[in-house]
Simulated scan of single mutants.
Amino acid sequence: MLFRVPDVDAADERVLADLERFRGELRHQVAEPRRWLGQLRRSLIAGAVRGSNTIEGYTVDVADAEAIAAGEEMPTAHDVQTRAAITGYADALTYVLQTARFEVFTFHPMLLSALHFMMLRGDLDRSPGRYRLGPIWVSGAPDNPPVYTGPEAEHVPELMDELCGWLQDGDLDAPAVVRAAMAHLNLVSIHPWRDGNGRMARCLHTLVLARQLILAPEFSSIEEWLGSSPHNTAMYYAALGEAQGGSFQPERDAHNWLRFCLRAHHLQAQLVQRRLEIAADVWRALADQVAAAGLGERTVAAVYAATRPGGARRTTYMSDEGLTRDQAIRDLQGLRGAGLIEETGHGRTLRYLAAGTAAQAERSVRTSITSQPLHDPYGAD
């Protein structure tokens, strides 16, 4: 038995309608050829990788996450466990994002175990890809009593078969975000593996969106939002705890969990919409500055990347624009000479940050667009 899709009320319907409107607007914006979209996509993927792992205590900064999203080495030294967790999750999420284009696809327990193996392959002692053979519980902190106890190990295979059967054929008329939220809750409640269950449940949430949404799934994932602040993470755990009731009780009402997820999707959609607006306005301002400095149009991509929290990296700029090493160096030197970027770090940590009028333009645009708080879709409900 699994948690069933709860009935939605009028407030939920309003939020779902808003999400559909966001989806339509974002689809239109993403479909148009804009040179900054590639960098924005990478930023969103990095945010999902960073957010989901932060929840589990594996923390990296924005520069490291964006490097991983670009297929590069993290510039900052980290312990083996953190590096393995970040790279493993990035690999699994990359696969998930590609499934949106798969002509042949089936939800199957082996698929989920393969994704789990990708995430935890750095530590074979944690049995990546293999179901647990004994009891499991979540304590929240060392030496604390359990806050959640999973079902007996002997029931895990049948529950996973049931979950994948539902993912393939169940409640197909329900909105994608609803099915994703329930997949998330059911997988984390089954807790089929010894470790990595939370990350896998969040990854499955994104996988359901990838398979059901026309919009690129990186624009719809809530993984970044869930791990973006201790407050959001605390609300996430509280919503899970309320739904689960301390043990595997799939007969419980999951309506509040669904509402939590719909609210998270709405807030993340607002954030993505803001980022699209900021990106477009910043790019236009920087294009004018680059032209005034007499530099080539392609260098806008470098100075735009320099306005991002992680800064610009020569290797990423080379890859994005299809340049040789010498071409990239000349472009970056030209931007430095014009006072639009400045260096920080050295060797592997060398990055370029926006400076002068470029930095001022980014701050002005960001302040203008983010001056008002996000709208809570449920208000006082």
Results as ranks from 00 to 15, higher is better:
L159G: 06
L159S: 06
M160H: 11
D161Y: 11
D161R: 13
L163Q: 05
L163H: 02
L167E: 13
L167N: 03
D169N: 12
G170W: 13
G170V: 12
D171H: 13
L172V: 13
D173V: 13
A174E: 15
P175Q: 13
P175G: 08
A176S: 06
A176D: 05
A176P: 01
V177P: 02
V177D: 10
R179N: 11
A180L: 06
A181F: 15
L185P: 05
V188G: 08
V188A: 11
V188Y: 09
S189G: 06
H191K: 12
P192T: 15
R194C: 10
D195W: 07
D195P: 04
G196T: 09
N197R: 09
N197W: 11
G198T: 08
G198Q: 04
G198R: 10
M200C: 06
M200T: 15
A201P: 06
A201C: 11
C203N: 14
L204Y: 10
T206I: 05
L209Q: 07
L209K: 01
Q212I: 04
L213A: 10
L213Q: 06
L213S: 10
L213M: 15
L213R: 13
L215Y: 12
A216P: 03
P217H: 12
E218W: 14
S221V: 06
S221H: 09
I222E: 11
I222K: 05
I222V: 15
E223V: 00
E224W: 09
E224I: 05
E224S: 14
W225K: 09
W225H: 14
W225C: 05
G227N: 14
S229M: 09
S229T: 15
P230G: 07
P230W: 06
H231A: 12
N232P: 03
T233I: 00
T233E: 12
M235T: 06
M235N: 08
Y237T: 07
A238N: 08
A239S: 14
A239T: 12
L240Q: 08
G241W: 03
G245Y: 09
S247C: 07
S247I: 01
S247D: 03
S247L: 04
F248V: 05
F248D: 10
Q249E: 07
Q249C: 04
P250F: 09
E251W: 01
E251Q: 11
D253Q: 04
D253V: 05
A254N: 07
N256M: 10
N256P: 00
W257A: 10
W257D: 10
W257Y: 15
R259A: 12
F260C: 14
F260V: 09
C261H: 05
L262Q: 08
H265Q: 14
H266G: 00
H266Y: 13
A269N: 12
A269S: 15
L271C: 01
L271P: 04
L271A: 11
V272C: 01
R274D: 13
R275N: 01
R275W: 11
L276G: 05
I278C: 01
A279C: 00
D281G: 00
D281V: 07
V282Q: 07
V282P: 01
W283P: 00
W283D: 02
R284M: 15
R284H: 12
A285G: 02
A285P: 03
L286G: 05
L286D: 02
A287R: 06
D288G: 14
D288W: 07
D288H: 12
D288S: 13
Q289W: 01
A291V: 05
A291Y: 11
A291L: 13
A292W: 11
A292I: 07
G294I: 02
G296T: 10
E297Q: 01
R298P: 01
R298Q: 02
T299M: 00
T299S: 08
